[in-house]
């Protein structure tokens, strides 16, 4: 029943956005170009190096692809949280609070941006191409992993997004800080974590669980042991990390909304 409500909201969003066809197509193309420009960077870098952090180009591209699709999906479904400071400033959040629905789900579905499919499609195209041309020993579990890794990655990114944007309930200029975490995580996860210095790696890979988005799933797909010595089973743990991240994000969001109701700022 509740799901139908959100489907109705989503459906209306889609209709509204598709009615501005030219600007939609332009925005859609811009999203693809945005994702493609990250690809260009990786290609340029591999024009100057045979490997990065011990990984060959196709291996890095698998990470880039998983991270790109995951980030794109998260951006599509919770990217609207970036608008939170505006919703708070204009009082529009109060309107959402006055409806008998989850506030978070309303913010997410309220103005979902279909153009973000552009990024997802671009990343997916790269991921499929690289996976099908790489020399991967495919097994059932690995096929399942390849299919679910971007989705699990999206959930982890989504949780990061929710936590980062919750900051906006306390800090007026929180949007840029939140973007640093979300877009920063996207950049971080597109490369093997072995390229980063240890302290940065520890923070971005495990405190913000960025390593579980693309790095560990890619290791499992490639049958590679972790050069940093993590046990092999960690490569299959991303779904568990995603569940934990969602739980944390849910708690943080509840706390943040409570705080908002407590201050009304």
């Amino acid at each position: 029943m509740a799901d139908r409500v959100y489907l109705d909201i989503l459906g209306s969003r889609f209709r509204a956005q598709l009615s501005y066809r030219t600007s939609f197509l332009l925005d859609f193309a811009a999203q693809m170009v945005g994702q493609a420009s990250e690809l260009v960077v990786i290609l340029v870098l591999f024009g100057r190096a045979k490997e990065m952090g011990g990984f060959a180009m196709h291996e890095v591209l698998i990470m880039y692809g998983i991270a790109g699709v995951g980030f794109g999906l998260a951006d599509l479904f919770v990217g609207q949280l970036d608008e939170l400071p505006r919703l708070i400033r204009t009082g529009q959040l109060d309107v959402l609070l006055l409806r008998p629905l989850s506030t978070l789900a309303q913010v997410a579905t309220g103005d979902i941006q279909l153009r973000r499919l552009g990024r997802i499609i671009a990343a997916l195209a790269v991921l499929v191409t690289v996976l099908s041309t790489s020399d991967i020993h495919w097994t059932g579990p690995k096929l399942l992993l390849a299919a679910t890794a971007p989705l699990v990655g999206a959930v982890i990114f989504g949780a990061i997004w929710v936590v980062a944007c919750s900051v906006c309930f306390w800090i007026v200029d929180g949007r840029e800080l939140a973007n640093t975490v979300t877009y920063g995580s996207n950049m971080f996860t597109s490369y093997p974590i072995t390229v980063y210095p240890p302290w940065l790696r520890r923070f971005l890979a495990f405190v913000i669980p960025g390593a579980f988005v693309a790095y560990y799933p890619a290791l499992a797909l490639l049958d590679r042991p972790d050069p940093l010595g993590a046990p092999a089973f960690l490569s299959w743990c991303s779904p568990l990390v995603a569940v934990a991240a969602v739980a944390v994000a849910g708690l943080v969001w509840r706390f943040a909304v409570r705080h908002y109701q407590g201050t009304g700022s």
């Binding site: 909201i9 209709r15 409806r99």
Partner: peptide
């Protein structure tokens, strides 16, 4: 609740469609 300066309608949808959505939201 009606706020004179905050809209509960969807700015880019026809009025009737906003009503339909609210019907769905409020069941």
């Amino acid at each position: 609740v009606v706020f004179g300066q905050r809209s509960q309608l969807w700015w880019d949808l026809p009025l009737s469609e906003s009503f339909e959505l609210l019907r769905s939201i409020f069941r």
